[in-house]
Simulated scan of single mutants.
Amino acid sequence: MARTNRVLIALTSHDKLGDTGNPTGYYVSEAAHPWQVFRLAGYEVDYVSVKGGNPPTSGYDADDEVQRLFLESEGARLAVTPKAAELDAADYDAIFYAGGHGTMWDFPTDADLAELGRDIYENGGVVAAVCHGPAGLVPLVLSDGTPLVAGKDITGFTNSEEEAAGATHIVPFLLQTKLEELGARYHLAPDFTSNVVRDGRLVTGQNPASATGTAQGVLAALKG
């Protein structure tokens, strides 16, 4: 594929943590730290969200300089994100599904986002996801009808981590279990430690600690 030097970060639009009444959204560090990796490597970063507009945030750490810089410098663009149907896969070298519990509700049901990811991958691009971001891989089916993750080495938020987070009975499904049911070979590290798995042009990270490494894995995959 002809390189565009553009990477797309996908963000959830879901803002409620099940029936708990607690807010959720995309986990800021899982967008901010990859953004930092990509921009320092010379890539232009764009954003997409399920509903468009300004996606909800969660887990913001004001003591993290990268997160502060991300929201300050990208805030105007984040406020007007497009929906997947408004974008062209040919414009991007990679798509990066950021996590946050919100993804568990809306990534799996966004057919346009799944189609965008499929087209980027089938154009020779990279598909990446971190933490709960692999919820975006659940509906991603290749043109031959095969789930992208089938037979692939991947990782993502684990059942053990979901239990530790107290959300096992809140989320609509367990991410690890669902991806394993789709044929993925799921690789686990100890809870909340960095773990990045690359299988060709599919790169996944287990948790927030894996966000930077997952983005670095995208760069490696783009180099072949």
Score class of each variant (00 low, 15 high):
142 L>I: 04
142 L>F: 01
142 L>V: 03
142 L>C: 00
142 L>W: 02
142 L>G: 01
143 S>N: 09
143 S>A: 09
144 D>R: 02
144 D>C: 06
144 D>Q: 04
145 G>Y: 03
145 G>V: 06
145 G>I: 03
146 T>A: 09
146 T>K: 07
148 L>A: 04
148 L>C: 06
148 L>G: 02
148 L>V: 05
149 V>H: 01
149 V>N: 05
150 A>S: 10
151 G>R: 02
151 G>N: 03
151 G>E: 05
151 G>C: 10
151 G>Q: 02
151 G>K: 04
152 K>P: 00
152 K>L: 05
153 D>L: 09
153 D>P: 02
153 D>Y: 07
153 D>F: 08
154 I>W: 01
154 I>N: 00
154 I>M: 07
154 I>K: 00
155 T>K: 00
155 T>P: 02
155 T>E: 05
156 G>T: 06
156 G>K: 02
156 G>A: 11
156 G>I: 08
157 F>P: 00
157 F>G: 02
158 T>A: 10
158 T>K: 03
159 N>V: 10
159 N>C: 14
159 N>M: 15
159 N>T: 09
160 S>Y: 09
160 S>I: 10
161 E>L: 08
161 E>G: 05
161 E>M: 08
161 E>V: 10
162 E>V: 09
163 E>P: 11
164 A>R: 12
164 A>D: 13
164 A>E: 15
164 A>F: 11
165 A>I: 06
165 A>H: 05
165 A>T: 14
165 A>L: 11
165 A>D: 15
166 G>S: 00
166 G>N: 09
166 G>I: 05
166 G>V: 07
167 A>F: 15
167 A>V: 12
167 A>P: 01
168 T>Q: 14
168 T>M: 13
168 T>H: 12
168 T>V: 12
168 T>E: 11
168 T>N: 08
169 H>W: 13
169 H>I: 08
170 I>G: 11
170 I>C: 14
170 I>E: 01
170 I>V: 13
171 V>W: 14
171 V>D: 03
171 V>H: 12
172 P>L: 11
172 P>G: 06
172 P>H: 12
172 P>W: 14
173 F>A: 12
173 F>S: 09
173 F>R: 07
174 L>K: 15
175 L>P: 00
175 L>T: 02
175 L>Q: 04
176 Q>L: 06
176 Q>P: 02
176 Q>W: 13
176 Q>D: 13
176 Q>V: 13
177 T>A: 11
177 T>D: 13
178 K>N: 14
178 K>Y: 13
178 K>D: 08
178 K>W: 10
179 L>V: 04
179 L>E: 01
179 L>A: 00
180 E>R: 09
180 E>A: 07
180 E>C: 07
180 E>Y: 06
181 E>T: 13
181 E>N: 08
182 L>V: 00
182 L>W: 03
182 L>H: 01
182 L>F: 01
183 G>V: 07
183 G>W: 04
183 G>S: 08
184 A>D: 02
184 A>Q: 03
184 A>V: 05
185 R>E: 14
186 Y>S: 02
186 Y>N: 00
187 H>L: 05
187 H>A: 05
187 H>Q: 11
188 L>V: 08
188 L>Y: 15
188 L>S: 12
